[in-house]
């Protein structure tokens, strides 16, 4: 079984069939075409998208449905075609096969999720793209909560 030495997640053994393929990469990371979804016990529902080409690159993501149950994904013909790949069983991916993940950004100001451009994965073909929702009112920095760390308590309390 292939092994990966991730800077953030440590050593991971994974079966090749778990690998997600992003033929276009991600904006600003066009060279990164292979990612491994990694879940950590106690950290659900976070899914880390660990690059298999860059051990120091792992995006924490959250399923969009966990954040916004009413979220409706809009995909263009081109995007659907990338997700379908050469899958001959269905010319277009079935909604149930698709999972949308919002990339999470943590800063001193707080934690935000990118609902404007979710990562969409076809669980059947293992193909993924980042699908910019041009017509959506959701933000690239959808606030999830106030920043707080275990070792940095509220100085005012």
């Amino acid at each position: 079984m292939p092994t990966l030495h991730s800077a953030q997640l440590g050593t991971i053994e994974y079966p090749e069939e778990h690998v997600l393929h992003f033929p276009l990469g991600l904006p600003a990371f066009e060279e990164e075409t292979r990612f491994l979804p990694v879940e950590r016990p106690g950290m659900e529902p976070i899914v880390f998208l660990q690059s298999l080409q860059r051990p120091d690159l792992a995006f924490p993501t959250l399923p969009v449905k966990a954040l916004e149950p009413a979220f409706e994904l809009a995909l263009t013909e081109d995007e659907l075609s990338w997700l379908a790949g050469t899958d001959t069983e269905a010319s277009a991916p079935v909604t149930e096969d698709l999972i949308a993940l919002a990339i999470v950004t943590v800063s001193v100001d707080g934690i935000t999720a990118n609902l404007r451009a979710p990562v969409v994965v076809n669980q059947r073909t293992k193909l993924g793209i980042q699908a910019i929702q041009a017509d959506s009112s959701y933000s690239l920095q959808h606030p999830l909560g106030v920043a707080r760390t275990k070792d940095a308590g509220n100085p005012c309390s």
């Binding site: 600003a28 690159l57 995006f59 924490p60 943590v106 800063s107 404007r116 690239l140």
Partner: peptide, 12 residues
């Protein structure tokens, strides 16, 4: 989207 991805990668 590219700028946000860079920020997310750095924050991670």
């Amino acid at each position: 989207a590219a700028a946000q991805n860079r920020a997310a990668a750095l924050s991670a």
